[in-house]
Amino acid sequence: MKQAGKYLFRYKKYGLLRHLSHLETMKMIERLLRRTGLKFEQTQGFHQRMKLSFAQALPTGIIDLAGLFIASTFEVIDDPFVIKANSLSPNGLEIVRAEKVESSFKLSKALEGYEFKIVFLETPPLDLDGEVEEVNDIWVVRTFRPFNSSVPKNGEFGQFLTVRSKAILSEVQVD
């Protein structure tokens, strides 16, 4: 039997959508993909759903510029598809791109971790590891968190904003 193509999607979630929980984000993305009309691989069992696998969950309130998920389909996903998806997407959710990966690709193996930007309106606390940058009385601390380790929560360090800015992947094997 022919195997469906596996795609790695990158998305951004910002603005008021940062207040969505991980489950709400997953549901929002699944419904967006359903609106495109493209057939994606489904889970097995009685209650069939789209088979999507998301990378690490993010606590509510964090801006996500480095969202990742994997979906499989027999159809071709190209730039026009991404444009179509974005036209059907709520404000604040954007699919950045989708790339085909090998069928053996697993996010849990490829994802090394994330870079976070923690934004302060006053001098950041000293116990927060990372590179500090200051422009016009705004401090940004860049910090790396390995995959599946704890992530900075909103307000944890008295910060103004938290951004998951980059996903660090070992080289993605494009099919």
Partner: peptide, 16 residues
């Protein structure tokens, strides 16, 4: 305010 309340997604509006 939204960072301080439970289930803020109820209050953000702008739904699809």
């Amino acid at each position: 305010v939204l960072d301080e309340v439970r289930k803020p997604s109820r209050y953000i509006g702008n739904e699809y």
